[in-house]
């Protein structure tokens, strides 16, 4: 395996939801998704709302199952197919290899912001002082006021929660970052901070797969755009 091998390779992936409580209604999401992401690249998923962009990120994260295909993630010296990996292997990938900034923060309730942010770094085995310093650095950079750090983020504004989420998503050293609209609820100054952070990760060789509705941000961070509407399912299942 060489360095130019993709970090992420999505091959012939199809996904639908079967709604058993609606008489088995099948809602197709995507069919035959195929693309790769190499180290140092930021591949942006394009296409209209509802085309399945967020679903693709969730499939790569192992949060959604898939009907068909393979999602191969390079982890250390091997390839793990998320589609067939055991829960234990997926948790391992999430700890060592993948990071995810979801659209909405879903933190464990009643946990202080600083601890929410530090957790992925601690899980990688970083010393507590180092993890704390990194978390403080990211929160400061993202303009999350220090008086909020000891509070759980549940009561924060949408923009503050999103910045906590970004800090949590970026704190650990991973090879693959999944970014679902990380700048959606941010003002211009904070958007610029996030763009800088993404550029720094890119320069460090992190492979990124993202969704950015903001055209300016997309133009600045995207190495390539993959149009998800090309993967639309044409024939609707009966």
């Amino acid at each position: 395996m060489t360095h130019s091998d993709p970090v992420l390779s999505v091959e012939g992936v199809a996904k639908s939801f079967v709604m058993h409580l609606r008489g088995g209604l099948t809602i197709p999401v995507v069919g035959d998704v195929a693309f790769t992401v190499a180290a140092g690249e930021c591949v942006v998923l394009g296409g209209p709302s509802g085309a399945g962009k967020s679903s693709i990120l969730k499939m790569v994260w192992g949060n959604y199952g898939i009907d068909r295909g393979a999602i191969r993630v390079r982890s250390a010296d091997r390839l793990v197919d998320v589609a067939t990996a055991t829960p234990r292997e997926i948790l391992g990938l999430r700890r060592t290899t993948m990071g995810y900034v979801s659209q909405f923060l879903r933190a464990v309730p009643r946990v202080a912001t600083l601890d929410v942010v530090m957790e992925p770094a601690l899980a990688q085995g970083l010393a507590e002082t180092e993890a704390r310093a990194r978390a403080q650095g990211l929160l400061t950079r993202l303009n999350v006021p220090e008086r909020l750090w000891t509070l759980p983020p549940a009561t924060f504004s949408g923009g503050e929660q999103q910045r906590v989420n970004i800090a949590r998503g970026l704190i650990a050293d991973v090879d693959l970052l999944l970014l679902d609209e990380p700048t959606a609820s941010l003002d211009a100054a904070n958007r610029a901070v996030v763009v800088d952070l993404i550029e720094a990760k890119k320069a460090a060789g992190v492979a990124m797969l993202g969704i950015f509705h903001d055209g300016d941000v997309r133009d600045r961070v995207a190495t390539r755009i993959v149009d998800v509407s090309a993967f639309a399912v044409r024939e609707i299942a009966a």
């Binding site: 939801f17 709604m19 058993h20 969730k58 192992g62 949060n63 199952g65 829960p87």
Partner: peptide, 18 residues
Amino acid sequence: EGLTDRVLDDPRAAYTQL
């Protein structure tokens, strides 16, 4: 059976969906 967030966010079986 599966990863907790997968089972809860993308339940497959009719009973789990219920």
